[in-house]
Design a protein around this nucleic acid. Structure first.
Length: 577
RNA sequence: CGGGGCGUAGCGCAGACUGGUAGCGCGCUUGAAUGGGGUUCAAGAGGUCGCGAGUUCAAAUCUCGCCGCCCCGACCA
C-alpha cells in the first residue's frame, strides 16, 4: 500500500504549454513524467510503475515464446558498425562520442550488429539453432525532431529480439511466433492494434509488419481495405491502377499553348480551368547521379521509396535547377515527356492510357495539351511510383482503401542472411557444411507503447488505465480525513486489499473532496473506492469503475471481495477485446 | 537544416508597441472556517524577466549575438 502523502504524484491542474497531444498532456498532468530537455524524460514513480507493468507483459510473452533474455551494451565501438557499413547508413541518427583514448564510440540506436557478433562467436552448430535473443534496453537516436513526449524521443526503451534459424522455412516459424507473441502483448496491454505491411527501411530484409495503434496524432500514415484484410503503411501501400483516363481533346493532336506565369500544377490547372489529375507531372531526379524523368498524375505524390526500388538506385535526390534546365532545356516548371531525349523515362502505372493530358513543353512558359501517352511517348515504361491514398482501390480485392494514421508500437522484420554473412554468424549443418544463420528481428517501443495506451484510453477528465498496465489497480479515497471513522475504514480496506495481493494507492491527503475526486479521475486508476461520512452512515462504501463511470455500493466488509471480483472482470474484458 | 512562434515565480499568463521601483490567476507556507466534484477569508514566501554584449541617467521593454523550447516543412517543380 502506498499513501498519497508519502508518494510523489505531482498532478497539474493546467497542462504545460508545450504539450500538444492528449497522451503527452496527460502524462505530464497526471504526474507520470517530467521533461529534462527535448526528447528526454524522467519517469516519476507512477509512470515508472506503469512502464514496469508493460515491461513485465513483454517479458512474460517473450519468455513464453521461447526467447532468451540478455542485456547488451548501450555503448558500442564504431568498428562493429563499420563491419556492416551501417555506420554510414545510420550516421545521422547515431550519437557519436569518443572515449579518453580518443576511440570512436556510438550510443546504440539498435542492436543487430551487436547480437550477430555475439552469435557469430557462440553459435557454431545446427544443434544450437533456432535461438532467439531479446533485451529490454535504452536506445539512443538523434531524431531530427523529437516530439509528443515519449512518442519520438532521443532516448527510449525498446524491447528488441533477434532470431537465428537454419533456413528460411525455420525463420518463417520464428517470425510467426514473434508475430503471435506481439498480438498477445498488445492485447494484454489493452491496446487495439492494426497490423500492416511495412517497408523495411534502414533495417533491410525481405518483409515486415508493423503493429499500429490507430490515432489521429499518429506519425505514420496507413491504408486499410474495407473489403479484405489488406492493410499497409503508406510507405509501402499499393493501390490498383485506375481505369485509363480520358480527358477533353483525347483524340486530338498535341498542341503547344502559351501559359504565362503558370508553372506549378495548381497554376497550370487553374490556367486551363481543369483538375490537377489531368496534369502529367514530370519531375527530374538524380538516381546515383544519373538524371531520370519521372511522370505521375498531377494530383499524386511520388513515393521515393518505391521510386528508388524501381530504379534500383541507392541514392535518389531531386535534381537541382541547373540539372533540370540542362535536361529539359527549360526553366524548372515546364518539364514534360514529349520529345524529351537523353534521359531515362519512367511513369507511374496510374498514367497508363492517359489521353488528353496536359504537360510541360520543355520550353519556358509553354505547356502541351491533348497528350496521349501511348501515342506520344511510346517508349515509356511504367511502375508503381506514387503513394496510395484513401479512396483508391485495393490491389487484392478491389475494395476501397481507407486512409488512417497510426502510432507504430511494434515492428517485425524478416532479415535473411544480410547480417549473419557480414558478421560471420555461420553454423555447420549435419553434413559439416557451413551456412549463414537466417535472421529475423523484432522491436517494441516500450515507452511509446505506454504513451499509446493513454492516447487510446482517456477522456476529458484524465487517463483511463487498462487494469493490466495501471500503476495501481485501485485507489482508496478517504473523502474527509478529519472524519475518524472514514480514516479507519479506509486504512483497513487498503490493508485488506494489500493482503489479498492487490496494490493500493491510498489518498489520505487532507484536501477538499473535489480536489481528490478530480485527481483520481486524472490519474485514472481502474477502480476507486470512496469512503465518506454519508455513505458510511448508510453502511456502505462506494466503488467507481473509471472506464465506465459505473458506481457500486457494498458493505465495508465486502469491499475487498468486490474489488477482486471487479478487477477480474476488467482483466477478462481486456483479454477478449 | 529551412520557416514560424515562444522564453517574465512551480504551472498558466499579462506587462514590451510608447524605457522609469515586476504584476495577475492557480499552486505553495501559516492561521481560521469549511468538509461528497478543483470551497472561503486573512497573512505570507517565492523572480539573475533564458544568457551575453550594446544603446541610455535609466532596459523585462530598444539593438546585436547566443542558447533553449514548441509547431510546420525538409527537396512534389
Amino acid at each position: 500500500m502506498v499513501r498519497w502523502t508519502q508518494q510523489c504524484i505531482p498532478t497539474l491542474r493546467e497542462p504545460p504549454q508545450d504539450a500538444e497531444i492528449p497522451s503527452h498532456r496527460l502524462m505530464l498532468r497526471a504526474g507520470l513524467i517530467r521533461k529534462l530537455a527535448g526528447g528526454l524524460y524522467t519517469f516519476l514513480p507512477l509512470g515508472l510503475r506503469a512502464l514496469r507493468k508493460v515491461e513485465r507483459i513483454v517479458r512474460e510473452e517473450m519468455d513464453r515464446a521461447g526467447a532468451l533474455e540478455i542485456l547488451m551494451p548501450a555503448l558500442h565501438p564504431r568498428e562493429v558498425w563499420d563491419r556492416t557499413g551501417r555506420y554510414d547508413v545510420l550516421r545521422d541518427v547515431m550519437f557519436k562520442i569518443k572515449d579518453r583514448q580518443d576511440r570512436e564510440m556510438v550510443l546504440g540506436p539498435t542492436h543487430e550488429e551487436i547480437v550477430t557478433d555475439l552469435v557469430a562467436r557462440e553459435i557454431n552448430s545446427y544443434r544450437q539453432l533456432p535461438r532467439n535473443f531479446y533485451q529490454i534496453q535504452t536506445k539512443f537516436r538523434d531524431e531530427i525532431r523529437p516530439r509528443f513526449g515519449l512518442m519520438r524521443a532521443k532516448e527510449f526503451i525498446m524491447k528488441d529480439a533477434y532470431s537465428f534459424d537454419v533456413d528460411t522455412d525455420a525463420a518463417e516459424t520464428s517470425y510467426q511466433a514473434m508475430y503471435d507473441a506481439y498480438v498477445r502483448i498488445f492485447e494484454r496491454c489493452g491496446l487495439r492494434t492494426k497490423i500492416v505491411e511495412a517497408d523495411t527501411g534502414a533495417m533491410g530484409g525481405s518483409a515486415s509488419h508493423e503493429f499500429m495503434v490507430l490515432a489521429d496524432s499518429g506519425e505514420d500514415g496507413l491504408v486499410e481495405c474495407d473489403g479484405c484484410d489488406y492493410a499497409a503503411n503508406l510507405e509501402r501501400a499499393e493501390s490498383a491502377s485506375t481505369a485509363p483516363r480520358e480527358f477533353d481533346g483525347a483524340a486530338e493532336a498535341i498542341q503547344e499553348v502559351d501559359t504565362p506565369g503558370a508553372r506549378t500544377i495548381e497554376q497550370v490547372a487553374a490556367f486551363f480551368k481543369t483538375e490537377p489529375a489531368r496534369m502529367i507531372k514530370t519531375l527530374i531526379y538524380l538516381a546515383d547521379g544519373e538524371p531520370v524523368a519521372v511522370l505521375t498524375p498531377g494530383d499524386r505524390d511520388i513515393n521515393e521509396i518505391k521510386l528508388a526500388r524501381a530504379l534500383k538506385a541507392s541514392e535518389l535526390v531531386m535534381a537541382d535547377d541547373a540539372t533540370v534546365e540542362k535536361v529539359t532545356g527549360a526553366p524548372v516548371g515546364f518539364a514534360g515527356p514529349v520529345g524529351l531525349s537523353g534521359v531515362r523515362l519512367l511513369a507511374d502505372e496510374k498514367l497508363k492510357g492517359y489521353r488528353g493530358g496536359i504537360t510541360g513543353a520543355n520550353k519556358a512558359e509553354k505547356h502541351i495539351v491533348n497528350v496521349d501517352l501511348e501515342r506520344d511517348v511510346p517508349e515509356l515504361t511504367y511502375a508503381d511510383l506514387v503513394f496510395a491514398r484513401g479512396g483508391d482501390q485495393c490491389v487484392r480485392c478491389g475494395g476501397t482503401l481507407q486512409e488512417k494514421r497510426g502510432i507504430e508500437v511494434g515492428h517485425v522484420f524478416k532479415l535473411g542472411t544480410k547480417y549473419s554473412e557480414q558478421l560471420g554468424a555461420q553454423y555447420l549443418d549435419e553434413a559439416g557444411k557451413q551456412h549463414p544463420a537466417v535472421m529475423g528481428c523484432y522491436g517494441i517501443g516500450v515507452t511509446r507503447t505506454l504513451q499509446a495506451v493513454i492516447e487510446q484510453s482517456h477522456d476529458k477528465d484524465g487517463v483511463i488505465w487498462p487494469a493490466a498496465v495501471a500503476p495501481y489497480p485501485v485507489e482508496v479515497l478517504i473523502i474527509n480525513t478529519q472524519h475518524e471513522p472514514s480514516v479507519q475504514v479506509g486504512e483497513q480496506l487498503a490493508a485488506e486489499s494489500e493482503a489479498a495481493g492487490v496494490d493500493v494507492l491510498l489518498d489520505d491527503r487532507d484536501e477538499r473532496p473535489g480536489v481528490k475526486f478530480k485527481d483520481a479521475d486524472l490519474i485514472g486508476l481502474p477502480l476507486r473506492v470512496g469512503i465518506g461520512e454519508k455513505s458510511l452512515a448508510r453502511g456502505v462504501v462506494e466503488i467507481k469503475i473509471r472506464a465506465t463511470g459505473e458506481m457500486r455500493e457494498c458493505a465495508p466488509d465486502a469491499a475487498t471481495e468486490t474489488v477482486l471480483e471487479l478487477l477480474g472482470t476488467l482483466n477478462n474484458a481486456a483479454k477478449s477485446s
